[in-house]
């Protein structure tokens, strides 16, 4: 039996838990703790450690989805996370440009140190004030060959599309 994992990272409130929950066959296990810092009062509680979801492929292969905020204070987790990792997804809340800077910094850290394929998901595209995906590409300084997808983490088809895009990139990397 083999297990592989994909990491879902991105700023607080970008939709990581939602994304994993939408496709996981188990209830997402979130190691959550209340954070009362003024800046993070957006939600009641926020993921401080990580989310954990599962998709069983067959009796020999299981895919785990790990959600992690990817902030500085969680740096020590990168190493644990990247073991058995196939690729990663950077989630970004398209309606909150104030988080783009942090998203970019998470992305740059990951890109530099995690040598696996990745995709960037411009999440919450169902909302009225979502930024245009191509504007986000520039704001996030993503080169044209970086896969940037419009996403709605609440929508199963959308989540599937993001996962398949990542897997396709992984396949391309393997096939050279």
């Amino acid at each position: 039996m083999q297990t592989v994992k994909m990491v879902v990272t991105g700023p607080f409130n970008s939709g990581k838990t939602e994304f994993i929950q939408t496709v996981s066959e188990i209830d997402v296990v979130s190691t959550e703790r209340k954070i009362s810092a003024e800046a993070e009062k957006v939600k009641e509680s926020t993921t401080v450690a990580m989310d954990f979801g599962r998709i069983t492929v067959d009796d020999q292969l299981v895919l785990y989805l790990f959600g992690t905020p990817g902030q500085k204070r969680f740096d020590f987790m990168w190493e644990i996370l990247s073991e058995g990792m196939l690729g990663f997804i950077v989630m970004i809340d398209s309606t909150r440009p104030e988080t783009f800077r942090e998203a970019r910094s998470i992305l740059e850290t990951f890109r530099a140190y995690a040598p696996t394929p990745y995709v960037v998901a411009a999440n919450k595209q169902d909302m009225d004030d979502a930024w245009d995906v191509e504007d986000m590409r520039i704001a996030l300084r993503l080169e044209n060959d970086v896969p940037l997808l419009s996403a709605v983490a609440r929508d199963k088809e959308s989540v599937k599309t993001v996962l398949i895009e990542l897997l396709t990139n992984i396949l391309n990397e393997i096939s050279g």
């Binding site: 496709v23 895919l63 199963k156 897997l167």
Partner: peptide, 19 residues
């Protein structure tokens, strides 16, 4: 091997399509 790697990823893709 390369084939085994591709096979693994293709199984993942197949499974996710079915979700």
């Amino acid at each position: 091997s390369k084939e085994e790697q591709e096979n693994l990823v293709n199984r993942l893709i197949g499974r996710i399509r079915q979700l």
